[in-house]
């Protein structure tokens, strides 16, 4: 029984090196109560997630405010591209830093420099591919093909940095894992669930953001792609809030299958 439990926990913990440290302690402390262990460990993870998400959210706010000091006549509507790239850049950087610091990233099998470089290159490739994919999807949704292609691509970059960067951080450049996590019951850790939630929220936010475009209100935020990028950002922020809350709410029901 204990063996099995250790095996299970070890698998779970292998997702996060930090929790790996605790795993043994918990096992010795409370091996009689499986539920308690899982819940306690999950509480710690949720706390980590809350702080990580708070940092990411504040980085978005900083990215909105900071260009005021560097760019003349900066405004979210007026110089939308600047805002967009500042937000996507900061989200990407902060995400990478946090997940690297937390050690959420999947354990690498080899530690050679070449392998790491190839991983990095593959990650970059995946990021660019995801930008192109998002661009294609947005064009299929009716964005003009040639006219304002830069705006469309910028939206794709923003969406990629809100969704793909996190995928890359949590799962690495590993397509089967992505497909597993992004299908319905494929989450194997708390971080997978939060990834699912934030990704879905960003995409749904961008989707909802397209709705005000046909309205004849003539507002500055109805200009392509402002409403969509704002929608995506707000969706992402909502996802950052919802993910820990939802996991906390359902922490007793959540059971993750091992690989």
């Amino acid at each position: 029984m204990k063996q099995k439990l250790r095996h299970q926990l070890g698998d779970q913990a292998s997702q996060s090196a930090s929790s790996y440290l605790y795993a043994d302690i918990y096992l010795t402390l409370a091996s009689k109560d499986q539920g308690l262990i899982v819940v306690t460990m999950r509480d710690l993870e949720i706390k980590g997630m809350v702080s990580a998400h708070a940092i990411i959210a504040s980085s978005i706010f900083i990215a909105t405010v900071m260009p005021l000091f560097f760019v003349e006549k900066f405004s979210v509507y007026g110089t939308h591209m600047v805002w967009l790239y500042s937000v996507s850049g900061s989200v990407a950087v902060v995400n990478i830093t946090i997940f690297w610091l937390l050690g959420i990233s999947p354990p690498t099998k080899k530690h050679t420099l070449g392998y790491k470089v190839s991983r990095l290159l593959r990650s970059c490739l995946y990021f660019i591919l995801s930008c192109l994919l998002f661009h294609a999807v947005v064009v299929l949704y009716g964005a003009p093909l040639l006219e304002s292609a830069l705006e469309t691509f910028s939206l794709a970059v923003l969406l990629s940095s809100l969704t793909t960067v996190r995928c890359l951080c949590v799962l690495g450049p590993n397509v089967p894992a992505w497909i597993r996590v992004l299908s319905r019951d494929g989450a194997m850790s708390v971080w997978d669930t939060s990834l699912q939630i934030t990704t879905a929220c960003s995409v749904i936010g961008a989707w909802l953001g397209a709705f005000p475009i046909p309205l004849d209100w003539d507002r500055p935020w109805q200009v392509w792609p402002i409403s969509c990028s704002l929608g995506a950002t707000f969706g992402y922020l909502t996802g950052l809030v919802i993910a820990p809350t939802w996991i906390h709410w359902h922490r007793k029901q959540l059971t993750y299958k091992s690989k």
Binding site: A210, P214, W217
Partner: peptide
């Protein structure tokens, strides 16, 4: 309920259809 959405109803359907296909 919105006059703009009635004028641009095609956008609603194209949008929904795209989402459906995805």
């Amino acid at each position: 309920a919105s006059s703009s959405f009635i004028e641009e109803e095609h956008q609603t359907w194209y949008f929904l259809l795209n989402t459906l296909c995805l």
